[in-house]
Structure formats: structure tokens, C-alpha cells
Design a protein around this nucleic acid. Structure first.
Length: 424
RNA sequence: GGAGAAAUGGCAGAGUGGUCGAUUGCGGCGGUCUUGAAAACCGUUGUCCGGGCGACUGGACCGGGGGUUCGAAUCCCUCUUUCUCCGCCA
């Protein structure tokens, strides 16, 4: 959520920046400004009446103490109408405020200056790439065939136990999952991230804090009986650690990392290109989250990008890093880098990480602030997060790219974690 | 799941209807003293929303929400959480 101050002070700048996201904010901002004006008027008026009531109450108090009961009764006269007036003002104020809030929530985050305008993924910018695209034989198999051949991931079993999109990992397949999770967590630890194991169901406040609620409610699994949500990403619980928190500037940046399963209903998004591991209802992901000083959040983003890149390099996967254009970015992001790995049999790029700076947009909802040493004022932090990494598509690429007649070769960096060098 | 008790500022802990945003202690910050530090002493110390160029000033907040009252941290209702006892349990 953008801050009202920003909109009040720089409305034309906001409108201009949002055009990069193909978003016409003029109408919403007009309404917000009008509601903001009314809100402040109403509050001034309501505060004044409340101040009079408070004074009267105090006076009545001292009259009672002095035993001047008649004076007190006299003073009480007319309070009823004032209270009624005050009640109505407060009610209107509440309506106007929540209406303003509702408008404010519809505005996406402003994209950073470097973000290119654009309509779709076609306008994204490839920043750099690495690794070598393997030269496979004509008969190279897609991962959905390989997992059957080696009996390491079982979709049918998942359908039996739960439903489509809930695979069962078996034997070396399960070991590979655990190896990747541990590898990613260990690398994060070396890079200075503190490991967190958060709850994987969250309450409404948390869902709202990171922006999944109210808009994307249908994308999360909801545990109705307890009104809790299965997390779509570890970002939700880990970032919500800092909800309603005031940090010291000296504590920034805060670096956290966590592994969790992630649950996504992905309602209505099934079709071509989602075979096998490409899209699941439950998958494993290691997430990195930073809370940064506003002046240094883009350094933090760079650092995260380098970290994710180093993981892909260690896994010896061909990858490319893309900076999303305005039209392809998420609602909440100010700048996003997507990481894609080449899937040799599918012959396409698969997104395995999305790493973003949300600047103060998320922090404003979360009320995540910091204070400079000695300062009285608090300032909103910047929040960032990125996948480091999401497992299924990494596994898909590893299987496809590393297939040999003898089996599937495990990259050297991972062998200490798997305990085997070949899936066969 | 059943019965009881509780929730107050960074922490501890007073406060059961009238200048209580809240006594006090610890911690934090600033100062005096000191070569420096400690101790001692003095001062200061929450968040949010308004008004004002500013000095300053109005309002809200004592777990959340609602109610009673001229007036609520204090009384009532409700929800949540914590603790104790019982039951169940990895």
C-alpha cells in the first residue's frame, strides 16, 4: 500500500510512474485526495467536540468533589446532543477513512526508475545469462518420462492420496529433495542469512500483512474451521515476523532464510505447459527475506540476485536473469528479477526464482519501521524477498539436462548432500 | 475438550469510576562529577492520527471488539492469548 503522504505530496509523480505498469491511477487518486481532505476535516471537527466533552467531564468531576451537585446537573444539560453529534461525526469519519483505505489498496506499487515500460513478458530485459545449454540426443526425454523410468516421483500416487498436483517423491527422488533443501539452506547460512522454521499455516492478519488478502484469497488453501490459510510461500510467515515492529537502524539489514512447503490452489490456471513438475499445488521452496534500510535496499537486492545466481551456477544449470518490465511485474513490487533455467527436453526457460524489492509498499501494510539512532521519528523499512530456490523446476531441469545412458548425473556440489552421484 | 486465574509502557510491577498516558524500579538516552570508567546525583524516555511556518497544540491507544456513564486501565458483554488443575497426545 502506498502511503497517503506520498499521494498527497506527489500525486502527479505517482500517476506518471504507474503508467509504466500500464495502470491509470488518475481516478483513484482524485478520489483518495478528496477522501483524505474530508477525513482530515471530519477529524478536526470531531476532535474539537471531543475536547469540549473532555473538559466538561473534568469540570463535572471537580464539581462533584466539591459537593456542588446542582452545578454538576446544570453542566450535564446539553451533553447528550453533543455526544450524539460526536457519535455521528465519528461514524462518518470511520466510513470516509475505510473508503479511502479501500481506494488506497487498489493502487499498485510504483516501479523503480530502471524498470522498462512494457505490456508483457516479451518486453522483459535479459540482464545476463550463464551456464552451458546441453547438447542432448534426439531422443532426450522430458522429466515426466524420466521420473517414471527411475521411479522417483509418483503423480498417480499423489492423486490417490490427495489429488492432482500433489506428487509423492520416492527413494532417490525424495533424497534429492532433501539434498536440495539442505544445500540451499546451508548456502544461505554462509551468505549471512539466519535460518527460520516458521508455521506453514497463518492467520488473516498475516495474510493481509503481506498482501495475499483480501485480493488473492482464492489462491490460498483455507482451513475454514480455524480460519487459517496454508502459506503460498515462506515470505508470508517470515515477513510477518516484522509486522508491527520498530527496529533500530543498526539492526538493518535483517537477513532471514527459511524452507517451507508451499501451497497454491492455482485455480483455473491448468492447461498446456503445466505438465509434470512445472506447476504444482504443493511444492518445496527455500525463501530469502531481507528487511533493509531505504537507502540501501537496492544494494540488498543486488546481493540477493548474486546469491541466487551463485546457487544456479553451483548446480551447473544454464540460466538467465531477467528484469521484469512494468507490465509483467507484480502488484506489490518496485523491481523484480526473475531467474530462469533451461529445460533441455521441454526446450524452454522455466522460472525458478523471483526476487523483488517491495520498497516501503509492503512495510506500510505491515507497519514495519525503524528508527535512526537518537531520532524521534520512525521510518518505514524496505522489504525484499526471493526464492533461493523453488525446487520442482530445478529438479525438472536437472533431470532433463543431466540425463545420460547410465542415469541422471548429480552436480558435484550436490553429491555431498545426496550421497549418490547418479540417479539410476 | 472441561474448570479456574490473568493480560498495563522495552522489561518488571502499582493502579477497582474523576487532571491516569498512567506511581515506582530496572533498562535506554542526555548531563554533572572523574584523567577515563564505575558509582552517585539531576534531567529525559511509547505509538498513531489531526491543526500550526514554528514555539506549540487537539484527539486516540492500558490484549482485540462492543457496551454502561457527564467521565472507564478500573464496571458489563464478547473474542483472543497466557498460566494452573483435569482429560487426551507426537
Amino acid at each position: 500500500m502506498l502511503t497517503i503522504n506520498l499521494i498527497r505530496d506527489q500525486s502527479s509523480h505517482v500517476i506518471e510512474r504507474l503508467r509504466v505498469k500500464n495502470f491509470d491511477a488518475t481516478e483513484i487518486i482524485d478520489r483518495v485526495l478528496e477522501l483524505d481532505r474530508r477525513r482530515r476535516e471530519l477529524q478536526t471537527e470531531s476532535d474539537a467536540i471531543q475536547a469540549r466533552l473532555n473538559t466538561l467531564s473534568r469540570e463535572i468531576g471537580s464539581m462533584m468533589k466539591d459537593g456542588r451537585k446542582d452545578d454538576a446537573d446544570e453542566a450535564r444539560r446539553g451533553i447528550g446532543t453533543m455526544k450524539e453529534q460526536q457519535r455521528q461525526l465519528a461514524e462518518t469519519l470511520e466510513e470516509v477513512s475505510s473508503e479511502m483505505q479501500n481506494e488506497l489498496i487498489r493502487l499498485p506499487n510504483l516501479p523503480h526508475e530502471l524498470v522498462a515500460p512494457g505490456k508483457s513478458a516479451d518486453d522483459n530485459v535479459v540482464i545476463r545469462s550463464g551456464g552451458t545449454v546441453p547438447d542432448l540426443d534426439a531422443g532426450a526425454a522430458p522429466h515426466w518420462d524420466l521420473i517414471k523410468k527411475y521411479d522417483i516421483i509418483d503423480f498417480d500416487l499423489g492423486i490417490k492420496i490427495t489429488g492432482a498436483g500433489f506428487p509423492v517423491y520416492k527413494g532417490q527422488g525424495a533424497r534429492l529433495q532433501r539434498a536440495l533443501i539442505n544445500f540451499f539452506l546451508d548456502e544461505g547460512g554462509k551468505a549471512g542469512y539466519r535460518e527460520i522454521e516458521p508455521p506453514i499455516v497463518v492467520n488473516e492478519d498475516s495474510g493481509f500483512g503481506t498482501g495475499q488478502l483480501p485480493d488473492k484469497e482464492g489462491q490460498m488453501y483455507h482451513v475454514g474451521i480455524d480460519n487459517l490459510y496454508l502459506i503460498p510461500t515462506a515470505e508470508v510467515p517470515i515477513t510477518n515476523i516484522y509486522r508491527d515492529v520498530i527496529l533500530d537502524a543498526a539492526d538493518l539489514p535483517v537477513r532471514n532464510i527459511g524452507y517451507t512447503p508451499c501451497f497454491r490452489r492455482e485455480a483455473g490456471s491448468w492447461g498446456a505447459h503445466v505438465r509434470g513438475l512445472n506447476r504444482l499445488h504443493q511444492f518445496d521452496k527455500v525463501e530469502i527475506v531481507q528487511i533493509a534500510h531505504p537507502d540501501r535496499s537496492y544494494e540488498a537486492l543486488e546481493e540477493m540476485v548474486k546469491h541466487v545466481e551463485s546457487l544456479l551456477a553451483s548446480l551447473e544449470l544454464p540460466y538467465r536473469i531477467i528484469r521484469l518490465c512494468g507490465g509483467d511485474m507484480s502488484f506489490t513490487s518496485a523491481m523484480t528479477y526473475d531467474f530462469e533455467v533451461w529445460s533441455a527436453a521441454q526446450k524452454r526457460w522455466l522460472e525458478v526464482s523471483s526476487t523483488s524489492n517491495f520498497e516501503a509498499f509492503q512495510a506500510n501494510r505491515l507497519k514495519c519501521r525503524f528508527r535512526e539512532k537518537g531520532a524521534k521519528q520512525t521510518t518505514l523499512c524496505h522489504t525484499l524477498n526471493g526464492s533461493a530456490l523453488a525446487l520442482p523446476r530445478i529438479v525438472a531441469a536437472l533431470l532433463e539436462n543431466n540425463q545420460t545412458p547410465e542415469g541422471i548425473k548429480i552436480p558435484a556440489a550436490l553429491v555431498p548432500y545426496t550421497g549418490f552421484g547418479m540417479i539410476s
